[in-house]
Structures are given as structure tokens and as C-alpha cells.
Computed example of a mutant assay.
Amino acid sequence: MFRRHERLRDSYDVVIIGGGGHGLAAAYYLARDHGVRNIAVIEKGYIGGGNTGRNTTIIRSNYLTPEGVQFYDESVRLWQDLSADFDLNLFYSTRGHFTLAHTDASMRTMRWRAEVNKHYGVKSEVVDAAYVKNALPMIDIECGGHAPVLGALYHAPGAIARHDAVAWGYGRGADQRGVEIHQETEVTGIDVEAGRIKGVRTTRGYISTSKVLCAVAGFTPRLLEMVGLRSPIYIHPLQAMVSEPIKPWLDPIIVSGSLHVYVSQTARGELVMGSTLDPYEVHQTRSTLDFTETLSAHMLDLFPFLSEVKIVRQWAGLADMTPDFAPIMGTTPIEGFYLDAGWGTWGFKATPVCGKTMSHTVATGRNHPLIAGFGLDRFARFELTGEKGAASVGH
């Protein structure tokens, strides 16, 4: 899918740290849209080995804040053309997305989200329990009697895609335009002189550069220490699991905040399931039996007939959380150092729009208008972008 380069050059116009979806997308659009091709993507592991390959592939734009709705709506628009852009089947599939409400308070939040969505032209509507049951006749609408479904927010554009293919597509597209992708290369230091980026130290040599984009998810605090910056990001593992393939029966994507469940079914028939964040900070991608047992129990509240279905694997990613559940993007106090972080549980769906907006920001040195509400300085100003009500069930 992309070439292997035996050595690093002495200098690059841009160094992108992190070979996940966001870093590769930024490299792709920098080369394609801005003509910046002297780029090195530095990845300490392998392409797609981080959160890009460790998520549940849900794509949506039914957020709560004006900043979030407009940002993710542009991402959904970009997603729909990616397979053609890459000449690669991403298995992008529009399914519709139900966010179930089990309490009166949840129903109020769904109405709030629906109104904000409609104001910005995003298709979302509040539906009642009968509508949910008609669309999902296999659901136990009473959830065993302890958390009955009262209604839902239905988001017609909700979709899924094949996550590893996204990394391959952006990587191949960037490579074809002259970008160098260096796997198994770790950044050990970043040199700053008089408040400006001067270079990057790696396990394979030194690179002179004036621009660095940091897109490393759960490793962000470690990279920020290298340039003397602090952030309010904290790291929690987020686990997921997948079932054996079964006959297709679940077309929409189902999310329940009260039960801490989100689930979709792949083209191969597997159920891809996720739940809440692990309740402690551990910088490891290990998985636990407690997660599997708890999520299985909540899945059976919704779909009791799945009791004999087998779980075949589980995994975890590192969720880089922010206090307001919105990302941190754009310029920083260090000239030439750009940040794409704080994605928590919602980074995969933002991959295309992050590439677009961060490539513009790096190329011009000015924040793209769509990320104006996501700057690092908002925390110092106490002007947060409160996205908790729609970020994910993990919160």
C-alpha cells in the first residue's frame, strides 16, 4: 500500500507525528490540496495499529454544540466520497443511528440535540418507543423491566466503515503524492528555539523542520512535555469486542447511554460492541473480563435472544479525554507546533474533516474556521465547548 524508506532525510517541510487516520489524512490533504509534499509521517508502531484500528467505526454528526454539529457534518459529507477518492472500497454503509432514551431527562437531551441538528441542516428527529420497536422488532423495549426505552434520537445519516481500510487509503494516497511514511520510528525529543520549532529527534536520526503536527491520541501528554506545553488531557482505556458472524439482522446502529452500549453489525455478520470508558487511568491497551461480562449483560437487556452467541475477540484503545469532551486542534503557543488531540471516543468519525482542517492550518499557519471552538487556549479563557451531552456513551 505504501513504500518503505530505508532512511530519513535530513530535513522536511512538515513532520507529522502519528501514523493513524488523522496524521495520514493531514498528510494526504497537505499533498493533494496544498502542494506540500516534502512531509515525513513518523509512526513508532505500524500504520493503523493505534486507535484507528481499535474503534467501533461509527460515523455520525448528531452532536449538541453548534461547533460540533457543523464540524462532524462536514466530516460525514467527506466520508461519502472517500472510496472514490482512494479507488478503494471502505465498506462505507449508511445505516441510520438510534440513540435510545430510557429516562425523561434523556428525552429532554434528545429534543435539545434534535433542534440544534435541524438548525444546521443535519437530519435528526426524536421518535417514540413505538417507532423504535417498529424499526427494531427484535429489541426488548422494556429492557428486562428495569430500563424501558421511552424514545430515541434517530439520525438517518449514521454510518459505519472499515477502519483499517481508511488508514490504508490515506496512507497510499499520501505515498503516491510523495509523502514519506516511516513506521517503527519513535520520536524521542522535539527541539524548540526562541519559541519556534527547530527539529525532531527520532530513534533513526535527527530531522530539521519548522513545522510539526502532533496527532498521537493517548500519547499526547508525553509529546507536549517535549515542547514545554501542558494540557488538561487525561487518558483512559476504552474497550470493545466483536461476536462470531451471525445472520444479518441489525441494520441500524444502536446506542444506549443508560446501559452503556453501542452496537452495529458488519457486512460479515459480526456484532461490533462498545461500552463505557474504564474508570481508571492506565496507559495500556489491555482488555479485561469485567468489561466483557458487563457489556454482555447490557446487550442481553436489549436483545435477550443473543444469549448463545459467542464473543471471539476484544481489544482496547487509549482515549485522550478533555474536560469539555471536545477536541483540541490547531495552533499552539509554540510557533510551528500544531495539535490534533483530545479525541476521546469520537476520533474515527472525524478523520476526514481533521485531515482537511489541520492541513489548511499547517499550510497557512492559521486555524481553519471549523476548528475555531477547539483551540487549546479555550481552557485558559474558561470558554469551553461543552459536548458531553452528545460525545458518546462512554461519558
Rank of each mutant, 00 (worst) to 15 (best):
T285C: 04
R32T: 09
D301F: 08
A40G: 10
A341S: 07
N367D: 14
A84C: 12
H97Q: 08
F382Y: 13
G158S: 07
W112C: 11
T385N: 14
I190G: 02
L302S: 04
L339W: 01
L271V: 02
R378Q: 09
V122W: 07
Y120G: 03
N55H: 01
T285I: 02
I16Y: 02
D87Y: 13
S106D: 14
A27M: 04
A26C: 14
V132S: 06
F86D: 05
V255G: 07
Y29P: 03
H360M: 03
G347D: 04
T109I: 13
G373E: 07
A319C: 11
G386N: 15
G151V: 04
I42A: 04
E74L: 05
T94L: 12
D33N: 10
S124H: 08
I311K: 00
T57G: 00
L306T: 09
A161T: 11
S296R: 07
Q70S: 12
I328N: 02
G218L: 04
S258G: 15
G199F: 02
D81M: 09
T203K: 10
G50E: 10
F379M: 06
E387G: 13
M329E: 05
L150F: 14
R204G: 04
E308Y: 13
G344F: 05
V116H: 06
G317K: 01
Y338K: 02
R196C: 14
M226T: 12
H97L: 11
F382R: 14
V116I: 13
E6K: 13
R37V: 08
A161M: 09
R222Y: 14
G394Q: 04
F325C: 11
R204C: 05
M321G: 01
G386Q: 15
K211D: 05
L302P: 03
H395C: 07
N38D: 15
P323K: 03
S208L: 12
M1E: 11
A105F: 15
Y170L: 11
G228H: 10
I139L: 11
L289I: 07
I207G: 01
G274I: 01
K44M: 09
S359I: 01
E125W: 10
T364I: 09
L370H: 08
G389W: 08
E115Q: 15
G347P: 00
H34Y: 13
V179Y: 00
E142I: 09
A372S: 15
D191A: 12
L302V: 05
V36S: 01
G228F: 13
V212S: 02
I160Y: 09
G23D: 10
L306G: 03
I59R: 00
Y28D: 06
G269K: 03
R196A: 15
C354F: 07
S83T: 10
S258A: 14
S11E: 15
T361E: 02
E293F: 12
A350E: 08
F348L: 08
V261E: 02
E125Y: 11
A363H: 02
G342I: 05
E293V: 11
A267T: 11
G171N: 01
P245F: 09
F71P: 02
H182G: 06
T209M: 04
S75A: 10
G18M: 03
D340P: 02
V353F: 01
L376I: 09
T57E: 13
Q314P: 00
D278N: 05
A105M: 12
E186F: 12
L229V: 07
K247M: 13
R196K: 15
S208D: 15
E6D: 14
D104I: 13
